[in-house]
Amino acid sequence: MSTQESYVTDDGRTIGPTVMEMKNITLRFGGVNAITDISFDIREGEIRAIIGPNGAGKSSMLNVISGFYVPQEGEVWYKGAKRPQMKPYEVAQQGIARTFQNIALFEGMSVLDNVMTGRIRQMNAGLLSQALWKGKAQKEEVENREVVEKIIDFLEIQAIRKTPVGRLPYGLKKRVELARALAAEPSILLLDEPMAGMNVEEKEDMSRFVLDVNDEFGTTIALIEHDMGVVMDLSDRVVVMDYGKKIGDGTPDEVRNNQAVIDAYLGVAHD
């Protein structure tokens, strides 16, 4: 299975060539190695999971991808070119959207405004046009609202469109955050523990949304999740990390039978 050739999965989705590749990433905070020499790739249209015990460096990895942390060593290749060092907002402009482990919504704004903010990449009317609410700004507002309404529809949050986000319960906030990330129409969607703190029904809902997003929009998804059942069911390929190192990489079945992974999760006797 070459990394460049497309193939079709059992459930009929097409997995394309590599869209993002991490090459020998090392990230240090002072003397602590958060990530040590990790390489993996993300292919177009796939759901790629990153798992590992607490403190394994999964979130740090996501932060490297979204440009929030700058690794000391290693390269990030995106769409066939080496990515120069850039600010997080420039990474976002390139089409990488993400959600956060601890919800990072704009609490004072309505759901609609939050999701509209996700359209920042597509809306660039000048300040004057916005000040007069004429021409490009007005046109943009309506066009992008249509897209946003489709996403609101898709995630079934129509009823709370005008509600300030601060008033919403946790599960809905998670969904709004997904909506905001989706609104950007990203090439890669990074989900940092999208199901943390949810009960079984909410997890099922969220899993369905993740699959639907991948299926309908063909969005490439990289996700961190602790619930093994969810990870094994959703993902096409899994990276396993432990203490900042990669200990496994492959399909869920391969990973499940990997001795190093089993040791990391179940513990192993030190001799």
Binding site: Y89, L105, F106, M109, M116, T117, A181, A184
Partner: peptide
Amino acid sequence: GMAGRKWMAIRDMDIAAEIIG
């Protein structure tokens, strides 16, 4: 409009605002 949303995003959570663009 979008200008206001950017401002409010910065106000409510500046790091998240930067990460979404």
